[in-house]
Amino acid sequence: MPIMPDMPDGATTAPLPPPHWTQDAALALVFLTRLPLPALGPLDGPLADGAPARAMGWFPLVGALIGLAGGAVFALAALAHLPPLAGALLALAATVRLTGGLHEDGAADVADGFGGGRDRLRKLEIMRDSRVGSYGVLALVFSVGIRAAALAALPVPAAVAALAAAGALSRCGLAALARVLSPARRDGLAAAQGKLAMATVLLALVSGIAVAAIALGGPALPALAAALLAVAAVAALARRQIGGHTGDVFGAAQQVAEAAVLLTLSALIGAAA
């Protein structure tokens, strides 16, 4: 048995830093939500190296938690005998409150930039502007309206499961988007994170699929296909419009993917209910 060296009087062993995955998961939760979280230690040194990029692998699990929060509100609204559409709007309002409208803001900026910009530089300039134009307002109206209408068509248990699955699936393709596309700007968080490792992409895809399989069962496969096709469509549009991705593009991709998942599930489950 190895003998431990004697420690000087009064000396204490330095605490081991938390493993990378706890920092990465916590960073994903901090980035995607407004939840007040206790610090898990300083994010510096080796932990900081690539942490924002690695955190994207945990986005689907955080998205599932956001969706479950919205599902809880939908269930409470049903218990209060509110109309399904009112419950759906309240559920979406809860998720927006939890995320601070992060993805909705990105979708509105992309709609304004892609719809109103004459060239690539002008589109990026508009996307960075904090003001919301007519294209952005319309994007938000359609995003909320389509998701609420699809959600209202589902029975309560299926709606709760759909929100959890949509929260995960709409974020599982974002890591792949970040790996396939280059940043459209030389500055900003998207540019600083660099190219994502394939392990991060796989973690995001596997965790998103696992959540959907547990929540949905058989309909998980078409829901996954809808989410990935939606993200791919936004990625193709972003490549053509601005030559790459930005944080706003991630938000737009999430919104389109979530709407696609809920529409798919409303067609498959709502019609059979």
Rank of each mutant, 00 (worst) to 15 (best):
A199T: 15
V201G: 03
L202N: 06
L202D: 05
L203M: 10
L203T: 13
L203N: 03
L205H: 10
V206G: 01
V206W: 10
S207R: 03
S207T: 15
S207N: 07
G208W: 09
I209C: 14
A210D: 12
A210H: 06
V211Q: 01
V211F: 02
A212K: 05
A213H: 09
A213K: 02
A213S: 07
L216I: 06
L216V: 03
L216Y: 03
G217I: 11
G218P: 10
L221H: 00
P222Y: 01
P222H: 12
A223Q: 05
L224D: 09
L224E: 07
A226R: 06
A227L: 11
A227I: 14
L228R: 04
L229V: 14
L229N: 08
A230C: 11
V231R: 04
V234F: 09
V234T: 03
A235G: 09
A236V: 10
A236D: 13
L237P: 00
A238T: 11
R239A: 14
R239C: 05
R239D: 12
R239V: 04
R240L: 13
R240T: 09
G243M: 11
G244M: 01
G244S: 01
G244V: 00
H245F: 15
H245Q: 14
T246W: 00
D248F: 05
D248V: 02
D248W: 09
